[in-house]
Computed example of a mutant assay.
Amino acid sequence: MTTTHSSNRPNPTTVQGKVTHTPLSIYIENTIRHYFAELQDELPKDLYNLVIKEIEKPMLKVVLEVTRGNQSKSAEVLGLSRGTLRKKMAAYDML
């Protein structure tokens, strides 16, 4: 069972001697639930595209930070070609 810090981030847990991490989908689900709670009775428009757009830029930013700006490594981590990564970076004014 996963426990949480006061920062509300789940801790890694050990199961049968292996460290397991909370799936990314859990964080995303919690964030989307929080978003709907803030909207109260209002329903968003074009949620799918909004979520993709909101996730992509910070994901690129963090991966580039983790790889110290190495675009080849970042592309590998993301499962993209370096050219596709550069196109996405250009679209977000990250070049």
Rank of each mutant, 00 (worst) to 15 (best):
I52E: 05
I28V: 12
E29F: 08
T67Y: 01
T2Q: 14
S81Y: 06
H5G: 09
V15A: 12
S7L: 05
T84G: 08
K87E: 07
E76R: 10
K18R: 15
M1F: 09
T13P: 03
A75G: 05
H5T: 06
N11K: 14
T4S: 14
A75C: 04
V62A: 12
Q71F: 02
T4P: 00
H5D: 12
Q16E: 15
S7W: 00
F36C: 03
N49W: 07
V62C: 11
Q40E: 15
I26Y: 13
K87N: 07
I52Y: 02
I28M: 11
V63Q: 06
P58M: 08
V77Y: 00
T22H: 03
Y48K: 11
P10D: 03
K88C: 09
L64W: 01
E42Q: 11
R33H: 04
G79E: 00
D93P: 07
M89F: 02
N8P: 00
T20W: 14
Q71H: 10
D41F: 09
M89N: 01
Q40C: 13
N49S: 12
L47R: 03
A37Y: 03
A90S: 06
T4W: 11
L95V: 03
K61C: 05
T84D: 11
V63L: 04
A91C: 06
T14I: 15
I55F: 12
G17M: 05
T2V: 05
L47G: 00
A91I: 06
L95F: 03
A90Q: 08
M89W: 03
A90T: 07
N30V: 07
M59V: 15
Q71M: 11
Y92K: 10
L64V: 01
L47C: 04
M94D: 03
L50Q: 11
Q40I: 13
T3F: 02
E76V: 01
P12W: 04
T4Y: 09
F36H: 02
K73Q: 14
L64Q: 01
L50D: 09
T31H: 05
Y27H: 15
N8D: 11
L47H: 02
Y27R: 15
Q71P: 07
N8Y: 08
K57A: 07
S74Q: 05
S81E: 06
S6N: 01
I55A: 15
T2F: 14
D46T: 10
T31W: 11
L43A: 07
A37G: 04
N11F: 02
V15N: 13
V63W: 00
I32S: 00
N8V: 07
R82W: 04
T84I: 10
L24M: 15
A90M: 04
Q16S: 15
R82I: 05
I26L: 10
H34K: 07
S74P: 06
L43D: 07
N49T: 13
D41R: 09
A90E: 08
S7G: 01
T2A: 15
P10E: 02
